[in-house]
Amino acid sequence: MSTTRTNNSGFGARLGAWRDQHIYSLLSSLGRIVSKPFSTFLIVGVMAIAMALPLALGMVLLNVQRVSGTVQAAREMSVFLKPEISIEQARALAKKCAERNDVEKVTVVSPDEGLAEFRKLSDLAQSVDLLGSNPLPSVLKIRPKDDGMALAEALKQWPEADVVQHDGQWRQRLNAWLSLGERMLKILSVLFGVGVLLVVGNTVRLDIGTRREEIAVMQQLGATDGFIRRPFLYLGFWYGLAAGALALGLSLAAGLALDERLRPLLASYDSRFELQGPDLMMVLALLASSAILGWLGAWLATGHHLRQTRPTDL
């Protein structure tokens, strides 16, 4: 045997060796997962549930935001004028109102038009007929340019205005709730993300414990920290990816179960609203972030072990 060491410094050879090392780590980590199906199921299950909770909250928020968007779009306000205000006076008021900078459009609904609309939408039309005369006032339907809060306050001061119907305050409250929900989602995501990190870290730590001798042998043979760490990083990556996929499955299953009960309920309100699941980008983001969390947890655990065992005994 010659003591001349083989020269593996060519770029192609190094690239091939790097690929071989990664394939070795990838397959060996996958092999470890497959060889312990029950243990893997428990670990992935815990991680998946931790991920599914913020994911489900995210889905709820997504759907509430869709509803809220529809509500936000309907920002029109109605000014019910006093019964003694004639249609001509109403038109004059509409013209005056349209001149304001914060008004986009004003439509006058006369008492006759209001009654016709009422007859179409309500079963009480026959009761109205019994009254003999049209009890409805003229109404100004106003679409503001902004949120309409200031406009509504100004219109309430008009002596001709009887009632100003405006949902601005309700919308503000809804926005506040949505904002609170978003903040809760962020907090829960961080908390459960840290939980996933700790679960993977602890799992990899236990795995390192069972492979302590193997690691020591590799260190003695000249393995770098990167080489030793790599199979564990892949292990964390697989756990994270599998947990992300399972969390997604659990959330979708929960969504389907809710949808089954929600559909008839919404149908009774003549609503066409449908529960929406995550889109492709959300799915990819979830899988990527869960895999990265798994990788990071493994990186922390192996880093801790490698720092503790340096240098090893002969």
Binding site: T6, N8, A13, R14, G16, A17, W18, D20, Q21, Y24, V217, M218, L221, G222, A223, T224, F227
Partner: peptide, 13 residues
Amino acid sequence: ALPLLIEGVPSKE
């Protein structure tokens, strides 16, 4: 084979 794998020797070799 372990030392060669650690050293980064191609699998054929």
